[in-house]
């Protein structure tokens, strides 16, 4: 069960997972993940379904523990701070680490505008000017502004699937997170919408750290700077995307990227 830690990566630290284990009741879903996610880069996590990649993502922003009977051990450093520290508050962790889900999940009873503003207004932000400004910025950053600026008060669910996903990205961006976790954000979308999400991820990485889980290797290759390969709850190999896809060091990685299983 030896995990190879990747060679030291020449970047400032974004997120550092240290010996992270996760359980669902008795199922040991993550078995000691240590991984350094560099700042302002796109890091992809790939692997066959059930390998623990989504669980890992949900351990970073402490969403995993919301599942009844779920447990986590180990440390996840955000900058210098351990998000699992005794004194750490998951709510504050999640405000700094945003998340986009596999299936777009706009709040069904809220308008486009209110969806994006939700993170601010629900946290008690009362300055309407400021909220308006941030909503526009976020929608622009999510490349959705031009499409929705004339119908901001229509329901969020009235948008197309791809637009809804970008709406969710805008919503996550509105609370200005330092990290954005994307859990197979394009798996339910058509190719054109997928491309837009990928472009968006690349663009956003100019400002924030992106971790994207995907089962689509081409997507990982297109979008990411670094890639980690998960198998059976372990991090098998991790390194610059180019290296991992062209000269994998582990046999199992090679098997996976050449399509021999999974």
């Amino acid at each position: 069960m030896q995990t190879r830690t990747p060679a030291l990566i020449d970047h400032t630290t974004g997120i550092q997972a240290q010996d992270v284990h996760a359980w669902f009741d008795r199922l040991h879903a993550l078995r000691g993940i240590s991984m350094t996610v560099p700042e302002r880069k796109v890091t992809a996590v790939i692997g066959p379904s059930g390998c623990g990649k989504s669980t890992f993502l949900r351990c970073i922003n402490r969403m995993h523990e919301l599942v009844p009977e779920a447990r986590v051990s180990g440390r996840v450093l955000l900058g210098q701070e351990n998000v699992y520290d005794e004194a750490a508050d998951p709510v504050l962790v999640r405000r700094r680490i945003g998340m986009v889900f596999q299936k777009a999940n706009p709040f069904p009873t809220m308008s486009i505008y209110n969806n994006v503003a939700a993170g601010l207004t629900l946290a008690g932000e009362r300055d309407r000017r400021k909220v308006e400004q941030i909503v526009e910025q976020s929608l622009r950053a999510a490349a959705l502004w031009d499409e929705v600026k004339d119908r901001l008060h229509k329901p969020g669910t009235s948008l197309s699937g791809g637009q809804q996903q970008r709406l969710c990205i805008a919503r996550a961006l509105a609370v200005s997170p330092e990290v954005l976790l994307m859990d197979e954000p394009a798996s339910a979308l058509d190719p054109a919408s997928t491309l837009r999400i990928e472009e968006l991820a690349r663009e956003l990485a100019n400002d924030i750290t992106i971790v994207i889980v995907t089962h689509n290797m081409q997507q990982a290759a297109r979008v990411s700077d670094f890639t980690g390969f998960f198998l059976d709850g372990e991090l098998i190999e991790y390194g610059p995307t180019n290296d991992l896809f062209t000269k994998p060091r582990d046999r199992r990685t090679e098997d996976y990227i050449t399509g021999r299983f999974g």
């Binding site: 400032t12 700042e39 955000l78 900058g79 210098q80 701070e81 998000v83 520290d85 004194a87 750490a88 508050d89 998951p90 709510v91 504050l92 962790v93 405000r95 700094r96 946290a123 330092e178």
Partner: peptide, 15 residues
């Protein structure tokens, strides 16, 4: 980059 203690529960939002 990150301000120390920002994830720590000073005046916790979760209280």
């Amino acid at each position: 980059m990150s301000v120390a203690g920002r994830v720590a529960a000073g005046s916790s939002a979760r209280t």
